[in-house]
Each structure stands twice: as structure tokens, then as C-alpha cells.
Amino acid sequence: MESTTENSTMENSPRQSAATVGIDPSIVSMVDAIPSNAPVVPVMRLKDVAVSFNGKVAVRDVTFDVGKNRVTSMIGPSGSGKTTLLRALNRLHDLTKSAVVTGSITLDDVDIYKGGIPTTLLRTRVGMVFQRPNPFPTMSIYDNVASGLRFNGIKKKAFLDDAIEHSLRAAALWDSVESRLKVAAATLSGGEQQRLCIARALAVEPEILLMDEPTSSLDPVSTQHIEDLLTSLKEIVTIVIVTHNMQQAARVSDDCAFLLMGEDRAGELIEFATTEKIFTNPTDKRTLDYIQGRFG
């Protein structure tokens, strides 16, 4: 497609505008250059969100909308507060007594902290996949995927069987585990375990799936599998992904939030825009420096 229309699209192509600001075109070429024409519907909105521990601010000034059925990535160097911010979105900081989340985070216009949604119900709507694969080691593959449903009172075998097949298929794991569903989850490889964790999270049919550097402990092939998966998953679930890896953000995400540690060592949101814009024509000088690889 590109070869026939190269000249006419040259002026607007991300590759070309990137070249003018000095960004490595190999990264830019990964950006999905065809912007979706569908209007962005915000499903979760963050406004002036800040998280602090023991009064010490870890991340602040975060305002952006998470678009429905889009992949939103959060990038930035270590210490910029990406993971801290992500864990505020399903109230996982509630576990830490000293943690305080301020500002507002709304899910379908209801504040997740003050709107009266019970935390456990919120977490069925906003699922999570963690940095290292963490299947329940005492459970079989089947029981791992079923666990979320069972926690929420669904016990009927026919329902569970169906949901488990559906989730494992969505996580591209069904074919390789279909014959050994009763086997301990720990027997799977690292990449398979992470896909199992994705299936486990998907089984409770969340509206949003939070992913905290889901490929950072995986080999390149498993990483590729997960990245391929994200593209198909966003049809059914909105994804927010934290990643260390800029190329990954460029490859998989539609929108991108860039965070950076300020002088007082608190992370803050520098820029939020479509991934295409962040990687080709960022507004803030610091974003440009980061994606050009000057630091981080």
C-alpha cells in the first residue's frame, strides 16, 4: 500500500515528520500509522490524580482520559510513577495504609474512590495483569481461570467451563492447554503463565484491563505473543499498559502518557496524546528527549 501512495502521503506520514525532529524512524515505523476514525469514547477519566505515601508525593498532576477499546500506554523512566499510577486505577493502594490517592478517577462518570462502588466490584470491572506471571501455584490451570468467577459466587460448572474456554481462547492459550486443564499452573512456561494470568483476568469480563509491564520478565518470543494478543484483545476490553519499553508502547498503543520524575523526585505527567503524536511530534521538549533516547 505504501509503495503506490508514498509520494502523496509523504508530507503527513509519521515517518517524515519524525525525521524533521530527529527521532529514530525505526521506532516511528512501529507506530500504527492508520488512526482510527471512530470517535474516542472516554471510559475512565483521571483528573489531577496524585498518589502519596506517608505524605510524600510519588506521582501527581495526572489528567487524561482512557478511551474505550483503545490501548493506552504509560511510559517513562524508572521512578516516574507509572506503576504507582496504574495501581491507583483499581484501588490496589488500599492495601497500603500510608497511601493516599487524591484528585478524581471516574469509571463511567462514577468516582471510583468516592462514588460508592464497592472495591471488590470495582476490581471485577477493572482487572489487572502483573509484572511477573503470578498464577496461583496451588491451583490447576482450570481453577486459576475459574478463581475470579468463584470469588464472585459463580459456581455452575457449565458456566465455568464455557467461560474458561472463552477466556483461554481470548488469551491465545486454549490450544496448548486444552488437554491438560487439570494440570498445575506452575508447570506452564513463563510466557504461558502470563497468558494464563491474562485469561484469569479476562474471565471476570472486566471493562478495563490494567497491565503492569506484562512482558518485562519474558523472553522475546513470549513478548511477541503477548503484544500480538493486545491488538485482538482491545476489541473486547480497554487496555492500560505500563511499559519500560518505548518500542513496545509504539507498537501496541493508541494513546500514550509520558511521565517523568520531577526535581523533588515525584513523578508527574508530562504529556498525554495519541501514540502517533508522542512519537512523531511531541509538544514537550522532555518527551522528545526521552523518545530520542537522551535519557531513561
Partner: peptide, 25 residues
């Protein structure tokens, strides 16, 4: 701790996490 978090992230109550995950492990 990641197992506890995984349980909570699936919408489990603390007591459920204790019974089904922590104690079992």
C-alpha cells in the same frame, strides 16, 4: 504478596484470599 494482590485484583474479599490462596499456599 503478588498472590494476594492477584486475588484482590480479581475482586476477591480479603477473607476469600486468606482461605483460598494464602492458607492453601
Amino acid at each position: 504478596a503478588v498472590l494476594t494482590e492477584a486475588g484482590l485484583a480479581l475482586g476477591a474479599k480479603k477473607a476469600q484470599v486468606m482461605r483460598k490462596i494464602v492458607l492453601r499456599y
